[in-house]
Amino acid sequence: MTQTTSERYRVKPIRDRRREWPFPLNLYQTAVGRKWVMAVTGIGLLGFVLIHMIGNLHVYEGPAKMHEYAESLKNLGSGILPRSLILWLLRLSLMVMFGLHLHSAITLKEMSRKSSLNASFQSGEKKYEGGREYIAASYASRTMRWTGPIIALFLIYHLADMTWGWWLGNEFVPGDPYHNLYSSLSRIPVAIFYVIANMALAWHIFHGAWSMFQSLGINNPKYNHLRRGFAASFAGLILLGNLSFPIMTQANLIDEEERLCQVSIGDTDEILACLTKQLEDH
């Protein structure tokens, strides 16, 4: 494009248009496209969070059912494919989604920060001396950049705790999620961290599950009014489900007193065999 507005009156762009990558990678080169990626990965993550939460409800059916659920995840598609392959693929795509979601969040934030710097009035965020009375921006929308990282941190902890058993030590029994969950959440600090993180998650979803419609351009006056409700209910549902675990544990509604296969430390195989047998008996 020839630019013929006299140079002296032309504000310079703060970023250059880079060389375009081939389709569809070029989508990720623009902020609107990146937001779209963010929304799509957000939806993926929403799906994960929902299924994860529903799955975990098996805990109320006791250790054996919980064990069965865990096994069934591993057995997904196992008729034809190697055991655990699908689960690993799912995990992989989750990781990719997470990575993209995170990367776009960080880079877009940086873009906005750069656009708000003002040569003569710098202070990290865009601020006005006269205070900034937000009218539309909700607390949730303004804290996406905080709730996000809290979730990420929690997730790492959560994985380390429940999947890899770093902190449970000897208490950790691979394949007995009921037990692991109980042992983890019965510790007060862990329960508190769990509660906080899930509140952050719900908070994140409260804005995210509304915002993604805008980012994807899903907008129709006929159902626009439903979008806020959808986001709020989704967030509420996840919050309710996920919070029930630490609360129930602390309230001793999830406990190990009545379990048939007692956990004897160190003897993993025995417990698993017991759990499997219990299922077959049923």
Binding site: T4, T5, S6, Y9
Partner: peptide, 13 residues
């Protein structure tokens, strides 16, 4: 026309 180079625009002049 500014974009196509036929008009040169001078603002604040």
């Amino acid at each position: 026309q500014v974009a196509s180079g036929n008009v040169e625009l001078h603002t604040r002049a």
